[in-house]
Nucleic acid binder design. Structure first.
Length: 269
DNA sequence: CCTGCTACCTGATGGC
DNA sequence: TGCCATCAGGTAGCAG
């Protein structure tokens, strides 16, 4: 479960499910999911606590409790599931038991994490996060300053969570395609006009994806549930060899710092 | 400080 | 069918 729109959609579905409710019990079934914390430490901190709010920061999901908070990060494959009864089944890493059901954090690959912290900023990852791209703080001016200060390829800057929080591999590729900018273009060599385009496409692509992710809304009761229709809105990601919808060129895939970049060599400069 | 590389895990998929 | 290589939406940690 991955980038900002998906996490935001999960937050919105989870909120009515757990807000105001007490975590009666927490079970850590795979200790790796809470590493480097100890399972007992997590359990002791959150059992008996009430969930006061469900929020998102970058790709982190935050459960604010009446004392401290739980932060979840889904990395590549993490997911949430909900059981209406205490009977849980399947691979669950961490289970949060409420009065009316159980919330499970699932991640077969064990990249995802669940931590308890006194304050969100006690997480180095959260503390370091950059601007929220769907907030009012993400102004063109702020974006232009970020670009000017970096000599890295555009795509790496877009994916840098300490600069902009929430863009990942899919949506950075998509935003660049929409702005007709090459993933390897040096950030500090982007012209003002191009910066304006990219700023707009970042916001547009995230809004569009969020719209898609919330219709239909995530259904944690369905274990097989996953976001539908996202491929429909993607123009380059995963489309190696296909025709570019804008200029008819062939979409290329190349590796950039270990991650797949998809772009159209015909119209992205 | 900035940047780039690797490790961390497991499952799905495709070529031979 | 079986095996092997490759790929996957992310980040932390470390070295230069």
């Amino acid at each position: 479960m991955p980038e900002l729109p998906e996490v935001e959609a999960v937050v919105r579905s989870l909120r009515p499910l757990v807000r105001g409710k007490k975590i009666r019990r927490c079970r850590v079934l795979h200790a790796i999911a809470v590493r480097p914390q100890q399972p007992a430490e997590l359990r002791r901190a959150i059992e008996g606590r009430r969930v006061e709010a469900v929020a998102r920061r970058g790709k982190y999901l935050l459960l604010r409790l009446d004392r401290g908070c739980v932060i979840l990060h889904f990395r590549l494959d993490g997911q949430l599931v909900w059981f209406d009864t205490k009977q849980i089944c399947g691979h669950i890493d961490v289970a949060f038991e409420f009065g009316d059901g159980v919330l499970g954090f699932v991640d077969r690959r064990h990249f995802g994490r669940v931590h308890w912290l006194a304050r969100p900023d006690d997480s180095r990852g959260i503390r370091a996060l950059g601007v929220e791209p769907l907030s009012a703080a993400f102004t063109l001016r702020r974006f232009t300053e970020l670009l000017a200060a970096s000599r890295r390829p555009l795509k790496l800057l877009l994916m840098d969570q300490t600069k902009i929080a929430g863009l990942g591999n899919i949506y950075s590729n998509e935003a660049l395609w929409r702005a007709r900018l090459h993933p390897r273009r040096r950030a500090d060599r982007v012209a003002p006009q191009e910066a304006r385009r990219l700023h707009k496409t970042i916001v547009d692509v995230l809004r569009r994806a969020l719209e898609c992710c919330t219709h239909p809304a995530p259904d944690f009761r369905d274990r097989a549930w996953w976001f539908e229709g996202l491929e429909r809105i993607l123009r380059v990601y995963g489309r190696k060899g296909e025709r570019c919808r804008r200029c008819g060129g062939r979409i290329r895939r190349s590796e950039l710092s270990g991650r797949a970049s998809y772009f159209c060599p015909g119209c992205q400069r």
